[in-house]
Design a protein around this nucleic acid. Sequence first.
DNA 1: TTGGGTGCAAACTATTTGCATTCGA
DNA 2: TCGAATGCAAATAGTTTGCACCCAA
Lengths: 145, 145
Amino acid sequence: MKEPQASREMTRAEVIGLLRRHGITPTQQRVEIGRVLFARTQHVSAEDVLARVGDQGSPVSKATVYNTLGLFADKGLLREVVVDPTRRFYDTNLEPHHHIYYTDTGELQDIVIDGLRLGHVPQLPEDAEVEGVDVIIRARRQPNR
Amino acid sequence: MKEPQASREMTRAEVIGLLRRHGITPTQQRVEIGRVLFARTQHVSAEDVLARVGDQGSPVSKATVYNTLGLFADKGLLREVVVDPTRRFYDTNLEPHHHIYYTDTGELQDIVIDGLRLGHVPQLPEDAEVEGVDVIIRARRQPNR
DNA sequence: TTGGGTGCAAACTATTTGCATTCGA
DNA sequence: TCGAATGCAAATAGTTTGCACCCAA
């Protein structure tokens, strides 16, 4: 289930294969969005994607960008990161990892925390199923405010 | 700096004292909102607060609820919890703790994780200042979907 | 009294939805 | 061909803002 996190732009054919393997019909717009997304490991908002697909290649509507990001996240091609109540971020890095969020700059960084250990979690009901654990370190670059 | 987390409704006078100690001018509406909030440990959205101050006591406008929640959070009377991209939650529990978020029910629960240890975090720049660490366990009550 | 606080409505932002059109298989 | 996907605009939800009035100190 591990997908290549290419550091170069993927070809259209590669994106199409990637989408197919995840049960997603590869349409023009989705492939276009996929090329922008999977060119490298990154964190994007819908706004980012919208701006970049407008630049290079054919334009994609706002609604389609939103729908596509949601679809990709559902199908496991993206991980949604909830750090900012005002907008959604999506992470193309699917490896287990956590995040540093710089509250002053809005910058989001991946980190791997070696020593993270979740000890006993007694309050979890037996029938509950854990979907994931998010760890977010909130920091600021400038001291004070 | 530790404040009493009363399990009973605070009197108006107690709320006024609490606000004053945090440098907040105690106005009628703020005291009203404070009584709703600090009656017990809880997680609330602006909508929750709006509904409850409408029920008991004098009505408070939507704008004032939003402004007041933001102010209380700034002044350290509430902790903002970012778990849901669609709305902000505020936690009256100021003790260090983490959260379980049930994605299917929208329920938010406090937990204390004994064994949580953040190991080496090499990627943090030296000049960066950590504001806090959020740990959110995403779970669902119903198996599967 | 007087500057901060409030109420109301309007503005705003991010996201979602409805529906006619277009496109992939 | 035919149902799924798209584009557009309008709708929605949560939150913020502008401004005249009001009240806590």
